[in-house]
């Protein structure tokens, strides 16, 4: 390795830099850099001017979008609350209790029909009670209507 280090030093002694550049490159380079800085500054200034010009339009756009988002969110919130109020919470419980994984559209229809049927049965029971009362008390239906 010592010998190779010497060889490297010898090699350097001949010509330290084997590369070259086009004629006048280093003389012209500072001017090239100055020109690039000036053009960069112009681009930057143009971008700032454009931004200043479109800033009010951007602000207005953002305000409109903001209002739209707030309005849509509020409407969605109100609508979802209204839909929830119309459905009996017991019905949900029953559906989940059966087995949520096996829940199908048909199942949902069956549960709704069953619910309606129960309401009808309740009404029938009530009217039977009134008929029996009228018969037991011997009250004529026509007289009752007249009294009312």
């Amino acid at each position: 390795m010592e010998n190779f280090n010497k060889k490297l030093e010898e090699l350097k002694g001949n010509n330290n830099n084997p590369f070259s550049v086009p004629k006048g490159y280093f003389e012209d380079f500072p001017t090239k850099i100055q020109e690039r800085i000036i053009s960069d500054n112009k681009e930057y200034a143009w971008a700032i001017k454009l931004f200043r010009f479109i800033k009010p339009q951007f602000a207005l756009g953002f305000i409109i979008i903001g209002f739209a988002v707030i309005a849509i969110t509020t409407i969605n919130f109100i609508l979802s609350n209204r839909t929830n109020a119309g459905i009996d919470s017991d019905l949900y419980t029953r559906i989940i209790e059966v087995d949520a994984s096996e829940f199908s559209e048909q199942h949902f229809i069956d549960v709704l029909l069953e619910d309606e049927k129960k309401i009808d049965d309740h009404k029938k029971e009530e009217s039977d009670f009134y008929i029996h009362y009228l018969v037991d008390e011997n009250i004529d239906y026509g007289t009752l209507i007249d009294e009312l």
Partner: peptide, 11 residues
């Protein structure tokens, strides 16, 4: 723009 000799190219 490479002016070196063969040894320098090798290096």
């Amino acid at each position: 723009y490479f002016n070196g000799d063969e040894i320098q190219r090798k290096l």
